[in-house]
């Protein structure tokens, strides 16, 4: 029963709700009725004495809250690490910030230092939680959803390239390139149609912003070629 529940919540977490929607869309409404009457005694019972508890569990089953799902595996240490890094950065302000000689105390370094210490404390607390989760064994928590790195890296790469080329290439081409690359990362493979849509989108934005709102967008090479 336990494992079934975990599987179910993992499925819900990975967002397959749309599949249910597809099933629901195919079934005409009256078909749901017999299920309704069969299910109601349970519901009535649940709403009885242990109302509070029933409420909590019902909500959890509907959509498990990722904010309360414990971290497992090696990647569990990533966020405590990030927290600690921010803490160290804030603390480094003690060394890097040069307060002007007549600054009224508390000066500009105090607030960052306090926040830095708090971040380090939180990072330690997260580490303790991680150790306790790991000790309970692998079955205690559902595994973290896997990350498909390829599309993420393509999107990030496209953003970096767009930032680098924006001034030189101009908005029209950069925007189109970015659109096309992100669409590719999300699985669009009709390259010609994608390119047409990308150019149309980019051009519409350029026209809307430059002509409609008077905001300048960089022209880039196109400006040099067609002044």
């Amino acid at each position: 029963m336990m494992s079934e529940r975990t599987a179910e919540s993992a499925e819900a977490a990975s967002g397959t709700g749309a599949e249910d929607a597809a099933a629901g869309a195919g079934v005409p409404a009256p078909a749901a009725a017999p299920e309704d009457s069969a299910g109601s005694p349970d519901a009535a019972q649940a709403a009885g004495p242990a109302e509070e508890a029933a409420e909590e569990t019902a909500e959890e089953a509907a959509a498990p809250d990722p904010e309360t799902t414990p971290w497992t595996g090696r990647s569990a240490w990533v966020f405590p690490g990030v927290t600690a890094a921010f803490g160290l950065l804030a603390l480094s302000g003690l060394a890097t910030i040069e307060p002007p000689p007549h600054a009224t105390p508390p000066g500009p370094t105090v607030f960052p230092a306090v926040v830095g210490v708090l971040l380090l404390v939180l990072s330690a607390c997260m580490a303790v939680v991680n150790v306790r989760v790991a000790r309970r064994g692998p079955s205690a928590a559902p595994p973290m959803p896997p990350v498909a790195w390829r599309p993420v890296l393509i999107v990030l790469g496209a953003l970096a390239v767009a930032a680098a080329l924006l001034q030189a290439l101009g908005w029209l081409l950069t925007g189109a390139l970015l659109f096309w690359a992100v669409a590719y990362a999300f699985g669009a493979r009709d390259h010609l149609r994608d390119a047409v849509v990308a150019l149309a989108m980019s051009a519409a934005v350029q026209v809307g912003f430059s002509l409609g709102l008077g905001l300048p967008l960089p022209g880039g090479v196109l400006e040099l070629m067609f002044p």
């Binding site: 966020f79 990030v82 927290t83 921010f86 803490g87 950065l89 804030a90 302000g93 890097t96 910030i97 040069e98 307060p99 002007p100 600054a103 009224t104 000066g107 500009p108 607030f111 960052p112 926040v115 830095g116 708090l118 971040l119 939180l122 990072s123 997260m126």
Partner: peptide, 23 residues
Amino acid sequence: AALLIGLVIGMAGIDGQSGAARF
């Protein structure tokens, strides 16, 4: 943790009180 990270991000730049540059 999220709040404090936000605080650190918000600290970047010139400190309005003393004029010192931070982060």
